[in-house]
């Protein structure tokens, strides 16, 4: 599950913003309104894609770690293995998982981000 923030936290922040009194001509509020629109779009994409992404991540993590469990448990175990040096950070199987993870999450968080095209292009702009 995506965290920092979770979808629930994001929805809560959007609701709090929507409940605020509208101040016509206030530049800060206009900026926050655009952020809230982005948050709503992110939530819609997550509602659509989040469960599939998580199921795919669990499959990849199980294969990578040779373990079974839910996403939070397997993801925490991967972090621990990296921290302890049990996994080489440039290991191809690990990188394949990280690549899929990054592509899946940016598709929810910020699908127009240039880094997605750069990763698919294989160069990050050189």
């Amino acid at each position: 599950m995506i965290s920092h923030p979770t979808a629930a936290e994001l929805a809560e922040a959007v609701a709090a913003f929507d409940a605020e009194a509208v101040l016509p001509g206030d530049a800060r509020q206009a900026f926050l309104a655009r952020v809230a629109d982005n948050a709503r779009a992110t939530l819609a994409r997550e509602a659509e894609q989040g469960a599939t992404l998580e199921a795919e991540a669990v499959d990849r993590l199980s294969a990578l770690l040779g373990a079974v469990g839910d996403f939070a448990m397997l993801n925490a175990r991967l972090c621990e293995a990296l921290r302890e040096g049990a996994l080489d950070p440039l290991d191809p199987a690990l990188l394949a998982h990280l690549r899929a993870t990054a592509i899946g999450q940016i598709a929810i968080d910020q699908p127009s981000y240039g880094g997605l095209a750069a990763l698919r292009d294989g160069g990050n702009g050189g």
């Binding site: 950070p89 440039l90 990188l95 990280l98 690549r99 993870t101 990054a102 592509i103 999450q105 940016i106 968080d109 910020q110 981000y113 880094g115 997605l116 750069a118 990763l119 294989g122 160069g123 990050n124």
Partner: peptide, 11 residues
């Protein structure tokens, strides 16, 4: 996740 996708490309 924007920093993460850039890091994967660099790695």
């Amino acid at each position: 996740s924007e920093a993460e996708i850039d890091l994967v490309a660099l790695m």
